[in-house]
Amino acid sequence: MKPGEDAPAGAERCSLCGELPVIRMSGPDRHLCAAHLIADLEERAARTIRERELVRPHDRIAVAFSGGKDSTALLIILSRLLPAWDDVSLVAITVDEGIAGYRDDTIRAAEAVTKKLDIDHVCVSFTDLVGDDLDTLLVGRETQACSVCGILRRKALSQAAHNAGATKIATGHNLDDEAQSVLMNTLRGDLPRLVRTSDADSHDCFIPRIKPLADIAEKEIAAYLFVQDLFPFLPECPYTRHALRAEVRSMLSSLEQKHPGTMRNLIRSKRTIEKQVDRSAISEPLRCCLQCGDPCSGEFCQVCMLRKSLGK
């Protein structure tokens, strides 16, 4: 055995064939080669979609597509599952928040992917929505970056999805994101948000949102892309270090490493609570924003409240 050669005799092999493994996965514990990793992820996403009935015949799915790893994997997986569905179409939507030194590269990466997959692609910007880019909006309030950005991105996305005639909005949220959200909502004591239903929101005012990758770990997604030479080597959003999520993310991934299954258990707890809870007792009923008419829980929607606080 020469140094630098492949695995030594007796080393782990793919649990399904004799090939060299590219990843070790838990629940159940197994090693998979590149081909079996790809098949495994696509099958699990297909199962999530089937079991939760996320896609129906004649759906037009707007895919929230930033060009980062999760949405790239989502778009590729949906485009591969597409032929099996009855009259379903995809449109990719990229929101340009206007984050210098970060977003330009990801938008170029996004355009290259949709071109290669031959999928309709729409780009919208925060400047179109509120007249300023995120960097300008956030001067002096950097710690609020993720909530400001989240509110505006949600709005920009639903507007663009509506204009594209979409019946569903698909986002690339993965298992890690879901587990982080459960813990964050718990840490903030935000019960209404904790039990907000995980599957397609059924309210008529909203285009239902679906998360086909909710059962797939972040690391599995990264590996899925890497073995297909599709991993986007892009910088992390410069604002994430201000966020509670960054702390929760690092804490949860340490726990998951020491105690495999932690993230799934957290999500399972949330699902159990979700089923038991009388949602109407803890959430405000939906109303229409007095300013813009969009559905919201208070007098004004979050976007209009944000506009007001920004003096827009």
Partner: peptide, 30 residues
């Protein structure tokens, strides 16, 4: 995720000799 001589490997793989190990941070989001 970690590659050994350009190929992705599980973290329980062994590196030796003049292997080139590349450690790639998984950026959040996307």
């Amino acid at each position: 995720i970690v590659s050994r001589n350009g190929k992705l490997v599980p973290e329980d793989a062994v590196a030796r000799g003049d292997d080139e190990i590349r450690i790639i941070r998984i950026a959040h989001g996307g």
